[in-house]
Simulated assay, not measured.
Amino acid sequence: MKKVAVDAMGGDFAPLEIVLGGIQAVRDYKIPVVLVGDSEQIRKILADNGEEANSLIEVIHASQVIEMGEHPGMAFRKKKDASISVAARLVKQGKCDAVVAPGSTGAAVTAGLLGIGRIKGIERPAIVTPIPNEKGGHTFLIDAGASANPKPENLLQNALLGYNYAKYVRHIKEPRVGLLNIGSESTKGSALMTETYELLSKQTWFPFAGNAEGRDIPTGEFDVVVSDGFTGNVVLKFGEGLGKLFITLLKDSIYRGGVLAKLGGLLLKPALKKYMMKKFDYAEEGGAPLLGIDGTLIISHGSSRAKAIRNAIRLANQVAEEEIPTLVKNTLNVAIESE
């Protein structure tokens, strides 16, 4: 098992829910965890839960926190002892294998970029996010918000990162990679998209399946969909809002449908909760990996509770075990040597 550092002070419910999530990960998966933050608060929660002497749980004190409203870059440089900064340094120094970062996405991306560092040959990191699809699996959207103004070369690199993640972490035998665009034709879209399409068509790292339209994301036609961070984040947030709208309309229809509709809804509720709602619950995944850095960092939702943190730690261990940075480095080295 890999050792995972957790920013225990990040998120809306820190440190209680974060520490509880760490405890659950240790109990359920036997993953070694390093809780970084206010050691007095963290140790009290551990003691209250009978885990103060657990050899798989380590506490490292950090005296500062990067708040949600702070400018990520400025705060990271100013607050050297912030919990996310200390956690990132543990990976950089080889003392931990991965970081779980709930709270500010900007702070997490900055910690990955400046604290851990980029893979040589990768200009900008990217967030890869799973979206449930009709085939029962996930479509992996990359980038979901790390870089809003990328160049075509950045999107090409994102495609490589997403392909490696889908193949080696998610064990999709031959991932189909598509470029998010407004049409399937190679000439459609902005200059950024047409130039990226040309680069993707010429590269030999993986098979390129062409343009993907927005409606293709939930069908499962593509395993990896490449986008700039601005568009990707809009797609992600729209999907979240649409899911909430669907639930609201479903409840309203049952309420308005009379006694039979209510009885039907009551009968359907267990199946919907088990087979549908579980797929849309972000806590099941726990977080989204930041790819392109020379280590493993999982960004968790700011409102994450213990279940989400537990699963984020599990995901961090899984990603770290596959050593994605090494795979990407090897691919880029081969490309450089062949030039």
Rank of each mutant, 00 (worst) to 15 (best):
V86M: 08
V86L: 08
R89Q: 14
R89E: 13
L90G: 02
L90Y: 03
L90V: 07
K92Q: 13
K92Y: 06
Q93N: 14
Q93S: 12
G94H: 09
K95P: 04
K95Y: 03
C96M: 13
D97C: 08
V99S: 07
V100P: 10
A101D: 13
A101H: 09
A101L: 10
P102G: 12
G106Q: 06
G106P: 04
G106D: 10
V109Y: 02
V109H: 01
T110F: 03
T110E: 15
G112E: 06
G112Y: 03
L113P: 00
L113G: 00
L114H: 06
G115E: 07
I116M: 07
I116R: 01
I116K: 02
G117M: 07
R118S: 12
R118T: 14
I119D: 09
I119H: 06
I119W: 03
G121Y: 03
G121S: 11
I122C: 01
I122A: 02
E123M: 05
E123K: 15
R124M: 06
R124T: 00
R124C: 00
P125T: 04
A126V: 02
I127A: 01
I127K: 01
T129Q: 11
T129R: 06
I131Y: 08
I131L: 15
P132S: 11
N133G: 05
N133K: 11
E134Y: 10
G137L: 12
G137S: 14
H138W: 14
H138R: 15
L141E: 10
I142R: 00
I142Q: 04
D143C: 12
A144P: 14
A144L: 07
G145L: 00
A146E: 07
A146Q: 05
S147K: 03
S147A: 14
K151E: 09
P152L: 12
P152C: 13
E153N: 11
N154R: 02
N154E: 01
L155R: 01
L156V: 04
N158T: 05
N158Y: 15
N158I: 06
A159M: 08
A159Q: 05
L160F: 11
L160W: 05
L161E: 03
G162I: 05
G162K: 01
Y163R: 03
A166V: 07
Y168G: 08
Y168I: 14
Y168T: 12
Y168P: 06
R170Q: 15
R170I: 03
R170S: 10
H171I: 10
H171C: 14
I172M: 12
E174A: 14
E174K: 06
